[in-house]
Design a protein around this nucleic acid. Structure first.
Lengths: 345, 345
DNA sequence: TCTTGCAATGCAATCGATTACATTATATTT
DNA sequence: AAATATAATGTAATCGATTGCATTGCAAGA
């Protein structure tokens, strides 16, 4: 009664041939005749054969499984990248294993080991904030397996990576503010030791300089990505004698804090103060006013990461690619002084 | 130069013993002496041995990988459940493979086959909307592997499942509205053929009946989970001669549509009309007014699903468990007429 | 007719770890 | 001292598929 699992040996026996012929037939090996292939496929179907990819991977020395390590799988950015990757690699018959580092390097190292033990074809990773040593990553490369970093990368290791162009993201956001008539533009940065925030800061500075707007050090503040912190910092900013008339934030959350504080304190957004966030989190479109934000192209990033991976796995010599994706400024109400004026007319 | 991969055979050779002894030592088999175990572990360490879990799984007949199939991996509910599952099963040494059905039954079937081919230990799935046949699911069970459904289940198959108690979720939301003085409560349902919406409707009816509030058929409407649809439907509701004074929506998005339409049309929320959503999407807490919503306990659901899975895998006889999680009403401003009054005083 | 070539298939080792079934050495019992 | 038990380790088959190296059969060429 129990369904006897069918292997290529059963098929071979039923056809009075051998497992090697069946294997070759199923893999469409040219050394097998058309008729034999047909018979094998029919018998496989009839016996309900299903390949054991583990056995095949063991013999071949590599599986069709890709390991992905992210800090948290439920952050919209990461889950969106994961979706993009899965969608793309599925076409080539790959599956993805998801691991979470919880921003902890020890977890990250353990995950890498587990994935290597599972004989993954390669590893795609966005580093934990803590990661300051890369031995575990080098191990992946030493095994000759593709290692692709995305979003959170590191200078300590030389491999393929896909990140967005933070410089231009910031540049276009600040330029947009300037075009909308804002002149005293504050900048909410993250920790400036982190490359992405360094880049966004560069973009902010360039946009101001290119438009002959003087730089005011009081307008540049490090703020954690958090609504309440955004409120606090905004309050301080608005106590300055020369109040800013716009805020460009490196985070949607601190930008939200800014909007909340401003509206609660009778400042109008965007008329009195324009606000732009970074990340284009879904909530930005539901706010009142809706929030302009820099979209990080997460799904596209996933697709690109997948393509780089697939490219790398087919060329066995390791060619590293560094891809810089262009972020997109999604303009909404919170920065659109001009639009508001026109309506007011 | 190339790192020769270390197997138990290399370790055995180095210690002048055999692979079987090494294997047993590494698995802490009581038949191996303490000293030998020590020597084996030291040599394994020295040679940089890393187990090949594929080989082990092949021999043992099962892997330590769990397949998860969801409609979309980047929906906050699903990504949150996935996170909960991963977090929990990791403790027992399992990893998770993620597949997406994109709400398509064909993809779902293919995913099941791929996962079975990969020799997963079991499958955890939230069904696609299209899924009306369950042959692919029965196949999993026939192989004696745990199959756990969550959130989107089906009557067509009898296995373990974890869902939230939609009836009580709706009941408590509507009761809360009544306690806050609302009397003419409308209900936004999803497709009532789907069990979760049927249950929420039951909860809505019971809460009204238990509080002696008459049922008004005009107040019950099917609405897709969508902001614009929510607006449209709200507009129609407010054209009734007897306008509702509260809306309980089966979706956060249509509830958001309701709030948007109401505030844009000079109704005050919650003073004139109370609104409650379902899902507790993160955006609900950032709205103005913040939105009361029924939390689906997604992370807890993930943990529970994982526990049911682990329980099932350890007891080889298949005992099915149906777990009903209690959702939690997160009360915020959009339904809090009383609170608002107190402040007004 | 005999060799040569080629297409089609078979044989057996292999991937790395596990495990049923010995075997050896030592300790214990009678 | 012989018999028996016990602890520790070894031998070899096995999981299911792949693949290098034969082998077989038949047709073409000499």
């Amino acid at each position: 009664m129990k369904t006897q699992k069918t292997t290529i040996h059963e098929i071979a026996k039923a056809l009075n041939t051998t497992a090697s012929t069946v294997s070759r037939a199923l893999n469409d090996n040219p050394r097998i005749s058309k008729e034999t292939k047909k018979r094998v496929f029919e018998m496989a179907e009839k016996l309900g054969y299903e390949p054991n990819t583990m056995a095949s991977s063991l013999r071949r020395g590599h599986s069709k499984i890709i390991g992905i390590i992210v800090p948290y799988a439920d952050r919209i950015f990461f889950s969106s990248v994961i979706r993009g990757i899965e969608e793309e690699v599925k076409k080539s018959g790959y599956n993805v294993i998801i691991c979470q580092s919880y921003e902890n390097i020890k977890n990250e190292q353990d995950d890498v080991n587990a994935l290597l033990s599972a004989q993954v074809a390669g590893i795609i990773i966005s580093l934990s904030r803590e990661t300051d040593s890369v031995d575990h990553l080098n191990k992946v490369m030493k095994k000759g397996k593709p290692l692709i970093l995305f979003d959170r990368t590191s200078d300590l290791i030389s491999t393929s990576s896909v990140v967005i162009d933070d410089y231009h993201g910031a540049y276009s956001a600040v330029s947009h503010l300037i075009q909308n008539g804002y002149k005293r533009i504050a900048f909410f940065s993250g920790n400036k030791k982190v490359s992405i925030f360094k880049e966004r800061f560069r973009g902010y500075l360039s946009a101001l300089t290119d438009n002959n707007i003087p730089i005011n050090d009081n307008y540049v503040i490090e703020v954690p990505s958090d609504v309440d912190q955004g409120k606090l910092v905004t309050e301080k900013l608005m106590e300055l004698s020369e109040k800013p008339d716009a805020i460009f934030s490196s985070s949607d959350f601190s930008a939200l804090g800014a909007i909340k504080w401003l509206t609660q304190n009778n400042y109008r957004v965007p008329e009195d103060v324009g606000v732009i966030g970074f990340g284009n989190d879904p909530f930005t479109q539901y706010l009142e006013p809706t929030m302009t934000s820099v979209d990080q192209k997460s799904k596209e990033m996933g697709k690109t990461v997948a393509q780089v991976f697939l490219e790398q796995i087919s060329n066995d010599h390791q060619i590293h690619r560094k891809v810089l994706l262009t972020p997109e400024l999604i303009t909404r109400a919170s920065s659109d002084k001009i639009q508001v004026k026109e309506i007011a007319v």
